[in-house]
C-alpha cells in the first residue's frame, strides 16, 4: 500500500488565488476512451480542477492506478441503465466530491453494437444523464462532445459550416449519424434551462492513436478506396486540441454550440499522400457495396456510410465563434506516416 502511494503521480500544488467557488469538480463519462484518458490527465494536472470522477463501463484500467484517490476516483457504471445512473448520483463519492461539471464523452461508434443498442447508449443515455444533471441543481456545467457529422452535406453546402448550418435530419441517414444528431439536439433543446450551462462541442475529424473516428480508421487502410473525380478539403484535429477545447469549455462561463476545428486543412488525397497511403479511385456508387464487403470480411473497421458525403464534398468547421468566445486556437499538428 505504502509502495503504491509512493508511486502515485502527484498533482501540482494548487496556485494561491484560485477561489474555492472557481474550482471545478468534474465527472467524465467514457473516461476509458482515448480522449477521456487524455482529458482526465489534463484535469489531474490542472490547478483549477479539484476532484475528478471517471465513469466508464469497463473495469478500471491500469493507467488510472497511478492517480491519487484524493483527486481521481474511477467508477464502473453504465449510464444507460437508470438504476446505475441513479446509484452514481446518490453515491457518497459523488456527494463528497461536490461535482459541479460533467463532461459527457460516452458515445459508442463501434460497429459491434446493433443500431438499437447504440441508440440506447448514445441517445437515451445522453438524455438520462442530462436530466439527472439538471435535477441535482448542483451541476452548473454540462459539456457534450459532438461531431461535425451532424451537419447535412450537399454539393452546394458552403465550404465553411458555422453552428447555424443545416443539420442532417434526413430520415434515410445512417443510424450512426442519426444518433449523433439526436443526442446533439437533446442537448440543444435543454440549453435554455437556467440551472445549468450546456456546451456542445462539434469536433471535426479527430486524429490520434487509438481514436475511433471514422477518418482515423480510413487513414489506417492501405490502400484507400476513394470516390473517383472528387478530392474534397478535409480538416483534421489533433486529439490534444480536442482536450484543450473541452478544458476551455469547462472553465469559461459559456453555453451554446461551438464548432471546433484543427490546424490541418488540405485535400483528402494530400493527407493520404503524407500518410503514405495509396488512393484507389472507384466510381462512388460502387464504394458503398465494396466497403460493405471488405468491412464484413474483416479487412477494415472503417464504416463508409457515415462519411460517404464527406469523401466527396467539402465541409469544414468554421470555428471563428469558438475562437472569439472560448479563446480556442488549435496548436497541435497531426503527424503522418
Amino acid at each position: 500500500m505504502a509502495e503504491k502511494k509512493k508511486n502515485q503521480v502527484r498533482p501540482k500544488k494548487k496556485i494561491r488565488g484560485v477561489r474555492a467557488s472557481q474550482v471545478k469538480n468534474v465527472l467524465i463519462t467514457g473516461v476509458t476512451s482515448t480522449i477521456g484518458r487524455m482529458l482526465a490527465e489534463q484535469f489531474y494536472f490542472d490547478e483549477r480542477v479539484g476532484k475528478i470522477i471517471g465513469v466508464a463501463i469497463d473495469p478500471k484500467p491500469y493507467y488510472f492506478e497511478d492517480y491519487s484517490p484524493e483527486r481521481f476516483v474511477y467508477i464502473r457504471a453504465n449510464i444507460l441503465k437508470y438504476r446505475e445512473l441513479n446509484n452514481l448520483f446518490l453515491s457518497e463519492v459523488f456527494k463528497n466530491s461536490k461535482i459541479n461539471t460533467v463532461v459527457h464523452l460516452a458515445f459508442v461508434t463501434s460497429t459491434r453494437f446493433t443500431p438499437e443498442e447504440a441508440y440506447n447508449i448514445n441517445v437515451e443515455g445522453t438524455r438520462n444523464l442530462l436530466l439527472r444533471c439538471i435535477e441535482t441543481g448542483t451541476i452548473k456545467k454540462f459539456v457534450f462532445k459532438s461531431s461535425m457529422i451532424v451537419y447535412k452535406i450537399r454539393p452546394h453546402t458552403p465550404v465553411l459550416l458555422d453552428e447555424e448550418a443545416e443539420l442532417n435530419l434526413d430520415p434515410n441517414a445512417d443510424p450512426w449519424i442519426k444518433n449523433r444528431v439526436d443526442a446533439d439536439m437533446i442537448c440543444r433543446s435543454m440549453m435554455d434551462n437556467p440551472k445549468m450551462d450546456i456546451v456542445v462541442l462539434r469536433f471535426s475529424n479527430i486524429i490520434g492513436r487509438n481514436i475511433t473516428s471514422e477518418l482515423n480508421e480510413f487513414f489506417d487502410m492501405k490502400p484507400c478506396l476513394v470516390p473517383m473525380g472528387y478530392n474534397p478539403m478535409v480538416n483534421l484535429i489533433h486529439a490534444k486540441d480536442v482536450v484543450n477545447a473541452i478544458q476551455l469549455a469547462v472553465h469559461k462561463k459559456v453555453r451554446g454550440v461551438f464548432n471546433i476545428g484543427g490546424r490541418e486543412t488540405a485535400p483528402l488525397r494530400t493527407f493520404l499522400y503524407y500518410n503514405k497511403n495509396t488512393p484507389v479511385p472507384l466510381p462512388h456508387p460502387l464504394l458503398g457495396p465494396v466497403y460493405g464487403f471488405i468491412n464484413k470480411i474483416g479487412l477494415t473497421s472503417y464504416y463508409y456510410p457515415v462519411e460517404k458525403d464527406l469523401l466527396r464534398f467539402t465541409a469544414l468547421p468554421d470555428w471563428s465563434k469558438a475562437q472569439k468566445v472560448l479563446g480556442y486556437r488549435p496548436y497541435n499538428r497531426v503527424r503522418f506516416g
Binding site: 465550404v159 465553411l160 478530392n231 474534397p232 478539403m233 490546424r263 490541418e264 486543412t265 488540405a266 485535400p267 494530400t270 467539402t314 469544414l316
Partner: peptide, 10 residues
Amino acid sequence: DEGFGYDVFG
C-alpha cells in the same frame, strides 16, 4: 494558404 498550398476552398 491554409498550410499545404491550398486555401479553404481548395
